[in-house]
């Protein structure tokens, strides 16, 4: 059979239909995004208009849009805060589920930590909404933007936790034994051996947490108070007004930020895998 290469493994590129399916998938996944990107340069007044020539006018409009900047800054502030908190918590959780004697409830703990990946987002959103309004009513405390940060932190934890845990599991414990053998106490062992070797895992976990927070719509939409408009919420609000290609420009900017972080995460994971 021609499809078997000399290694005995199947050469997927020679399978019938591979080319067609690959192209179909690429088109389905990326064509809409490509359209958004291309039409952000359309010199037209409305988002549904046909191509009327290349123009940077909508980016210029966007640069003058104070609402866009305010919401982008809020998104970045929230994402940075949620990333820092979820990465610290994720690192601690990863250490507690890999660098200890097996303990009762370890499996359950792992399940709970990663549950935001499984629980439908709308359910988390409703429960967080209920939670914060309960607190507000019972104690009269309104967290303001802090509640967005807390909510984001909670669903960012698994994204930070999983790469860090994977890295820890791949790391040789005798290195930590060696550090202890060479007079490092627990803190110094962590500081000089575990942490530096864990850094690629931590950075990629943090990058993932950042984009997950930066992109979040459902949860933020439900719990955000008036004036607490993150970038996705701002874009959403614009759709309901007059829709111009400025929206495309915003989405393109958002997309570029996400891609930048994905690439960063990828590069950091690849680096120093030895």
């Amino acid at each position: 059979m021609a499809s078997f290469a000399s290694t005995g493994k199947i050469d997927i590129k020679r399978q019938t239909g591979f080319g067609f399916i690959a192209v179909a998938c690429l088109v389905a996944l990326y064509l809409p995004i490509l359209v958004v990107l291309v039409f952000s340069f359309n010199n037209a007044m409305s988002i549904g208009a046909s191509w009327q020539g290349f123009s940077l006018r909508w980016y210029v409009t966007l640069m003058k849009n104070q609402g866009f900047f305010d919401s982008a800054i809020l998104s970045i502030v929230v994402a940075v805060a949620a990333t820092v908190m979820s990465t610290i918590l994720g690192t601690m959780a990863a250490l507690a589920t890999t660098r200890v004697k097996r303990w009762r409830g370890q499996g359950a703990t792992m399940l709970i930590i990663t549950s935001p990946l499984i629980v439908p987002e709308i359910v988390s959103a409703v429960s967080l909404l209920a939670f914060f309004s309960f607190i507000a009513q019972a104690f009269g405390i309104s967290f303001g933007i802090l509640k967005i940060v807390l909510a984001h932190t909670s669903f960012c934890i698994p994204f930070a936790y999983l790469p860090i845990k994977a890295r820890l599991e791949g790391m040789d414990v005798t290195l930590e034994n060696a550090a202890a053998d060479l007079y490092a106490d627990r803190w110094k062992t962590f500081r000089y051996v575990t942490l530096p070797l864990l850094l690629p895992g931590i950075s990629s976990g943090a990058a993932l947490a950042f984009i997950v927070s930066f992109d979040d719509f459902t949860i933020t939409q439900l719990i955000a108070g008036p004036g607490e408009t993150t970038l996705p919420l701002f874009i959403w609000s614009r759709i309901r007004n007059i829709v111009t290609p400025e929206l495309n420009a915003m989405c393109t900017v958002l997309l570029l930020v996400s891609i930048a972080f994905i690439i960063l995460s990828f590069v950091l994971t690849k680096k120093k895998q030895d």
Partner: peptide
Amino acid sequence: LPPNRRPINTVFQNYALFPH
């Protein structure tokens, strides 16, 4: 005593050199 409080050092079978 924990390992870091013992004036004893080990040469590990896989060397366990710090790669970084």
